Amino acid sequence: MTIDFNKNGDGLVPVIVQDNTTKTVLMLGYMNEEAFEKTKVSGLVTFFSRSKNRLWTKGETSGNVLKLIDMKVDCDGDTILVKVQPNGPTCHTGTDTCWYEENKSDFGFLSRLEEIIDSRVAEGNSQSSYVASLFAKGINKIAQKVGEEAVEIVIEAKDNNDDLFLNEGADLLFHYLMLLKAKGFTLEDVVSVLESRHQ
């Protein structure tokens, strides 16, 4: 890893801090060569504080340290990407990130779909919403739909119609997300179980 600490003439390079699990950008700081070496040795992210004019290990007073997972240098050798496991909120204001964003896993469209399911259930309009109407019938009916969709995808898996197979897969996943909601869980809870098995 070759880093050009003298490119800007002040011995500092910007450091982008990213949660290794959620991929959320948590903060931006600066390192000099000494902070970089201390980070590698200690395993805790250490910056050079421009306001205090000294090394500063994140969380040294709050306890909200950033455990080092990985470091990469960009193509120009003048910016560091630090992947971390945060212990608590990162920003000094008490928020997860310095951009006031919540640090949570994002599964792209599946996360949006969970939000849509949440809103349909909260609205409770069973006349115009399939989700609300299914929830109005109770958890047994939701579980039954998951079972029906599971059987249908098994049937389609034995045929050669890829379009029907993928559509049944979408139906199964959609109804499973509803069952998770009905049980008080989210996709992130399932991913946590899978991650614990992987370790």
Rank of each mutant, 00 (worst) to 15 (best):
D4C: 09
V45P: 01
V191T: 11
R54L: 08
G63D: 12
Y100W: 11
Y100A: 15
Q85S: 11
N103Q: 12
V154T: 10
K52S: 05
F135E: 03
V25R: 04
I117K: 11
V13C: 04
A143E: 13
L177F: 07
T2W: 08
N20W: 08
D171T: 07
S129M: 05
D118M: 05
L113A: 09
A122H: 13
I139W: 00
D162K: 01
V82L: 01
V45M: 01
D19N: 14
A150P: 02
R197P: 04
S111D: 11
D78L: 06
R112C: 13
S192W: 08
E188F: 05
G124H: 03
T79S: 14
D162M: 12
F109Q: 09
D162C: 03
I142F: 02
W56C: 01
D4R: 11
N160K: 13
V84H: 01
N6V: 06
L12E: 05
L66V: 00
M27A: 03
Q127E: 14
N161F: 00
V13R: 04
I3F: 07
D4T: 10
K40A: 07
I139M: 01
D70E: 14
I16F: 03
G88T: 13
A170M: 06
N87E: 15
S111W: 09
V131S: 05
K181N: 12
A35W: 01
K181L: 08
I3V: 15
K23V: 05
D189S: 10
G147V: 04
V121F: 03
E60G: 00
E152D: 10
A132C: 06
I80H: 08
S105R: 15
